Computed example of a mutant assay.
Amino acid sequence: MRKLIAAATTALLAACTSTTDPVPQQSAAPVAMRDTQSSVSDYYRVAARVEPVAESVCRSFHANKPRGFCDFQVKVNTDPSQPANAYQTIGADGRPIITFNVNMLRSFRNDHEIAFVFGHEAGHQIARHIEQTQANQLAGAVLGGILVAVGGGDARVGVDIGGAIGGRSYSKKFELEADTIAAHIADRAGYNAAIGARTFERTRGSSALLATHPPSTQRMSQVARTIQTINTAKSQGGRAPVAW
């Protein structure tokens, strides 16, 4: 058993990067792409306003974590050949990195969408989704290795398959949680989360995307419910606590 766990851990460390599932934009209709320079400039401008809010929310949940845990780095992938995408990773120094590639930035229609997707990626860190995904991958790899080995097969094949299944086991749940956190962050930063969530209107449900992400209609409904909670708290003179 110890050898199998060690093999699973080694395989996962070799195969996995510390990243959340990306948020690809797959348009149901052609998207009018903006120019690169202004798109990147808008991103940094909005991020400068949203990042302190995301950092504050993160620290409210993780006061005992190292300070870098909530200190978001903001980056742009300038490779024009990459499909529109945004993702969160962990740097070598332990700080979370939020990266938007240039084609994602060019697809945004307004600041609200930038703020919402930034909040979504920050939400993955706040909810500790990378840590949970890696734990699920390890558990799945060990179980897969055991089952295949018991059946007389190559345990390494079971490790690979089990790890892949384990890593995706809660991915849709994690996406909805990140959407909920994003609505709170965008609102607190002064942006309209309902407008921001309309980025989902341009996402079509390919089989690859639906393997890790909920349908766009479900995500928009989740955001709408969160906004209702936020607005109800405001009408009562308070502020809704961030929950997911």
Rank of each mutant, 00 (worst) to 15 (best):
R2C: 00
R2I: 00
K3A: 08
A6C: 01
C16Q: 14
T17I: 14
T20N: 09
Q26F: 05
Q26H: 06
S27L: 03
A29M: 12
R34F: 06
V40H: 03
S41R: 14
R49I: 05
E51M: 12
P52A: 09
V53W: 01
V53Y: 09
E55L: 13
E55V: 09
S56W: 13
R59E: 10
S60I: 02
F61E: 08
F61L: 10
R67P: 00
G68K: 10
F69P: 04
C70M: 12
F72L: 02
Q73P: 04
Q73K: 07
N77G: 06
P80S: 11
P83M: 05
A86V: 13
D93E: 13
I97R: 04
V102E: 07
N103G: 10
M104R: 09
L105Q: 08
R109K: 15
H112A: 15
H112E: 14
A115D: 14
G123N: 07
I126W: 14
I126P: 10
R128H: 06
I130F: 09
I130L: 13
E131S: 04
Q132V: 04
T133G: 11
A135E: 08
Q137A: 09
Q137K: 07
A139W: 00
V148C: 06
V150I: 14
V150G: 02
G152I: 02
G158Y: 01
V159Y: 04
I161V: 14
G163R: 10
A164Y: 00
A164S: 09
I165W: 10
G166Q: 04
G166H: 09
R168S: 14
S169M: 11
Y170A: 14
F174C: 12
E177N: 08
E177M: 08
T180P: 02
T180M: 06
I181P: 00
I181W: 01
A182D: 02
A186S: 15
R188Q: 14
R188W: 03
A189Q: 10
Y191Q: 01
A193H: 14
A193P: 15
A194G: 06
I195S: 15
I195T: 15
G196N: 12
T199V: 15
E201H: 08
G205W: 06
A208E: 15
L209Q: 08
L210D: 01
T212H: 11
H213R: 04
P214L: 04
S216H: 02
R219Q: 00
V223T: 10
T226D: 06
I227L: 12
T229W: 01
T229I: 01
T229A: 13
N231C: 03
A233P: 05
K234C: 01
Q236K: 05
G237C: 02
G238R: 15
R239W: 02
A240D: 08
A240C: 12
W244A: 13
